[in-house]
């Protein structure tokens, strides 16, 4: 799918204001490809308006020293709490988001002994059923690979500077907040944001 400019949150009331570069799809994809540590573990981090590729993700983390490779795809749902979703879109602040992704992936390599980390997040409107995030990790054995991949995803959802906007079939609109839900979609007990 080709990137196309689309209405951004808030822009409707300020059509004359130039779109800041971080909201301009033509300035994407924004990628950070680097390595971590003395053994040069590959890290690939990406924010893109294009369709995500699971194959590319797995290729980036493949390594002769890996016996386990985990791929996670987060896909967009057509309801939120049984309320039908018409369309949903994501925006990001890459100056902070890529920095957070780099920190998380480096930390995951050290914590779980991973041989590679790939994280890509899609921005703009994401049609229902398509991937909005892909995480792939490789490790020597399945234990560290499963745990590493899960940890990466949980921390990404908690910290990375990306926001999801849901427009409902009934006409409502909401900005989602990950701090409100756990990994099972259940409401967390209300507590102060500790970030």
């Amino acid at each position: 799918m080709s990137a196309r400019p689309e209405p951004q949150p808030g822009s409707e009331r300020n059509a004359t204001e130039p779109l800041p570069s971080h909201l301009d799809p033509t300035t994407y994809p924004r990628t950070l490809t680097t390595t971590h540590g003395p053994t040069s573990i590959p890290l690939h981090l990406e924010l893109t308006y294009h369709t995500l590729s699971p194959t590319t993700a797995l290729q980036h983390v493949s390594s002769p020293s890996s016996g386990a490779n985990i791929l996670f795809l987060g896909t967009t749902r057509d309801t939120f709490d049984d309320r039908p979703v018409a369309r949903l879109s994501y925006t990001s602040y890459p100056a902070l988001a890529l920095k957070s992704l780099h920190k998380i992936s480096s930390e995951a390599v050290e914590k779980f002994g991973l041989n590679g980390v790939y994280i890509a997040h899609r921005l703009g409107e994401v049609p229902v059923g398509e991937a909005s995030i892909v995480v792939a990790v490789g490790a020597g054995h399945r234990g560290e690979a499963w745990r590493g991949a899960e940890w990466v995803l949980e921390v990404v959802k908690e910290r990375v500077e990306v926001w999801k906007r849901e427009e409902f079939v009934d006409g409502g609109m909401e900005w989602r907040e990950n701090r409100e839900r756990d990994g099972f979609g259940k409401l967390k007990t209300k507590k102060e944001d500790s970030r």
Binding site: G10, P20, H22, T91, Y93, M173, W175
Partner: peptide, 18 residues
Amino acid sequence: FQIHYFASASTYTGRNTE
């Protein structure tokens, strides 16, 4: 200086940046 608004902040102010 430039200030950017995201998510609920952009909805509240009606703008992305100023």
